[in-house]
């Protein structure tokens, strides 16, 4: 092939990011360009697999495209972080479409400037997983020590009277086992990856939060490509790509959920009425968070949050109207 494009991400090669998302995408690009482009994928085990450096290495031009987590390092994409507000997003499809539409509508300001944005997406609504104290109501959260994935979730937990604890994924199992923490707030995917289902007993499915992800390309590199290659990239990115994440996350999450069921754990489903109450209780914290974003250069955070809520409702109706 005359052109080689390098893609990096921060997860192991066996993860769905590589198997279901990037490898088929790369193959599509190679086929569409009739072999003119060859794609090399660098996973977590490579020199380019550091989670906090995915976007930086694209900007530096060392890597052409990368998939990374918006929240690490923190505060890089302040406007996009609004998608991570508690109880905003429940499903990966609505969340991904919402984030992507906010970007297309220009609501995200300068968050991804200088990048060719191939896709933005979120995961499926995260759960509250606990050892032996089931979380059925807000009161149950009081005094629990829970491992938190992000500053937004930390703030939410604190406002409910829980103690958020920051831990790297590799320390989760041991700390659960010793009872240093009572549980954790995260996806099925991560719970499964750290084999925590064998320790946990309860999983409260409240669609508590989501994390945002990016799939970015170096703009200069994109501009330097021949027209047919640029066209091929555009055809398989953006709208058609963003639409696929709902299905993918269903698949990636299913494995962790099935494993929990196998261990005989209880999955506590929170109904929409209770979820709305929980969301109300956290409004002061959300207001404070949005206010804080102004100092980080976001012009009108309230408007973005407003628009995000509209979009989520719109996509939930489109995709999940028949779920209940």
């Amino acid at each position: 092939a005359e052109i080689t494009l390098k893609i990096s991400h921060y997860l192991p090669p066996s993860h769905g990011f590589q198997k279901d998302f990037l490898e088929p995408w790369a193959k599509q690009l190679e086929e569409k360009t009739h072999g003119k482009v060859e794609v090399k994928i660098y996973d977590a085990t490579s020199a380019f697999g550091k989670i906090d450096r995915q976007a930086d290495q694209v900007r530096a031009g060392v890597i052409d495209m990368a998939v990374g987590l918006n929240g690490i390092p923190r505060d890089r994409y302040p406007a996009a972080s609004i998608i991570e507000m508690p109880f905003l997003v429940k499903y990966a499809d609505s969340g991904s479409e919402t984030l992507w539409n906010l970007y297309k509508e220009g609501m995200l300001g300068s968050d991804y400037k200088d990048f060719k944005v191939l896709a933005l997406f979120t995961h499926e609504g995260g759960l509250i997983h606990t050892l032996d104290k089931p979380v059925r109501s807000l009161e149950d959260l009081k005094g629990l020590r829970l491992r938190t994935p992000s500053p937004a979730v930390s703030a939410m937990l604190e406002s409910y009277g829980a103690s958020p604890v920051g831990l790297p994924p590799s320390a989760i199992y041991e700390n659960l086992q010793k009872g240093n923490i009572d549980g954790l707030v995260t996806t099925w995917d991560l719970v499964n990856a750290v084999k925590a289902n064998e320790l946990l007993k309860y999983h409260t499915d409240a669609g508590a939060y989501v994390a945002g992800f990016y799939f970015l390309m170096n703009q200069k590199k994109f501009d330097s490509l021949p027209e047919d290659v640029r066209k091929a990239i555009d055809e398989i990115s953006g709208d058609p790509l963003v639409a696929k994440f709902g299905g993918w996350w269903d698949k990636w999450e299913a494995a962790g959920k099935a494993d929990a069921v196998k261990h005989g754990n209880e999955i506590i489903k929170i109904d929409d009425k209770t979820r709305a109450e929980w969301k109300d209780a956290v409004q002061p914290m959300i207001k404070e968070y949005l206010e804080g974003l102004k100092a980080k250069g976001v012009k009108d955070p309230e408007a973005i949050y407003q628009r995000a809520q509209e979009l989520v409702t719109q996509f939930d109706t489109k995709y999940h109207a028949g779920d209940k």
């Binding site: 930086d56 690490i72 390092p73 923190r74 505060d75 890089r76 500053p151 920051g166």
Partner: peptide, 9 residues
């Protein structure tokens, strides 16, 4: 980039 640490910024 103005990067800050995860918890205390």
């Amino acid at each position: 980039y103005g990067d800050v640490s995860q918890n205390l910024a």
